[in-house]
């Protein structure tokens, strides 16, 4: 079966620092693939290489077999690569619904329309409301996005990514800064997505990773140390030495 994402020898250096060093990785369709690793291991850099925000020094990225290595960020997004940001990126002054509607607008053709009121356009509003319901934020649809709590903003992030109807969802620490309860709810929501969309998940919380991931890749100093099922990774001595340490007994 063709991989959802195929990374071949991806490398990216910042000066002398090899942030990503010859990474080979295959993400299967509909799996949830977690990428773990200590701070500075190169996880966000890898996400950047996948979204196109960072261009690799070497290597290739294939999306469902198609070489997208040199594609721009928006082109990749339209090809089905959705993402959430480690630090939320929302539009202040726009309501939660406006923000999600913008995502719907993104995938519905060009936006060189200058007259009709976009906020009265049900073709944008209806799918946006649906995405908000999916993440449990529909009650806050009309609240200005900058007034939302931190946890709600993270939900909004997810709603925007989902509204793009992505084939692959890249989530960079979707639970970052959330309280335990919010975090648990988010895990429930992501579990509900499993099997519908391919997910690449970056997450520090091992409980979350082991609850969600079908497979785990461990990144250390820019290199893939190992890939496998959660149990395999948990049992791997090198992983415990390099990363997990005492965290997982």
């Amino acid at each position: 079966m063709i991989a959802a994402l195929e990374l071949k020898g991806l490398s990216k250096s910042f000066g002398a620092l090899r942030a990503n060093d010859d990474i080979d990785l295959s993400i299967r369709e509909h799996e949830c693939h977690a990428i773990i690793g200590p701070n500075g291991a190169g996880k966000s850099t890898l996400i950047g290489l996948l979204t196109g925000e960072i261009l690799p020094d070497r290597g290739q990225v294939l999306l469902f077999g198609e070489d997208i290595t040199h594609w721009s960020v928006p082109r990749r997004a339209l090809a089905g690569l959705g993402r959430s940001f480690q630090i939320t990126q929302i539009v202040p002054g726009f309501s939660a619904l406006d923000n999600v509607a913008l995502a719907v607008q993104g995938r519905s053709g060009h936006s060189f329309q200058f007259v009709a009121d976009a906020r009265a356009d049900m073709r944008l509003r209806a799918p946006a409301i649906e995405a908000l319901e999916q993440v449990g934020l529909s009650a806050r649809a009309d609240v200005m996005s900058e007034i939302l709590s931190h946890g709600e903003r993270r939900q909004l992030e997810l709603a925007m990514a989902l509204a793009l109807k992505p084939r692959v969802l890249l989530l960079d620490e979707p639970m970052a800064g959330m309280g335990p309860q919010e975090s648990a709810l988010m895990v429930q929501r992501l579990i509900a997505l499993k099997g519908q969309v391919t997910i690449v998940l970056i997450e520090h919380d091992m409980d979350v990773v082991f609850a969600l991931a079908d497979r785990v890749s461990v990144l250390v100093a820019g290199q893939v140390l190992t890939s496998g099922t959660p149990d395999e990774v948990r049992a791997d001595r090198r992983v415990r030495a390099a990363y997990l340490g005492g965290e997982v007994a």
Partner: peptide, 21 residues
Amino acid sequence: ARFGLVLRGAKASERRMAALG
């Protein structure tokens, strides 16, 4: 209109707008 919302969104976050296509 759609155009204006994109322009305003890009002021807040160019990265976000690119990620939305």
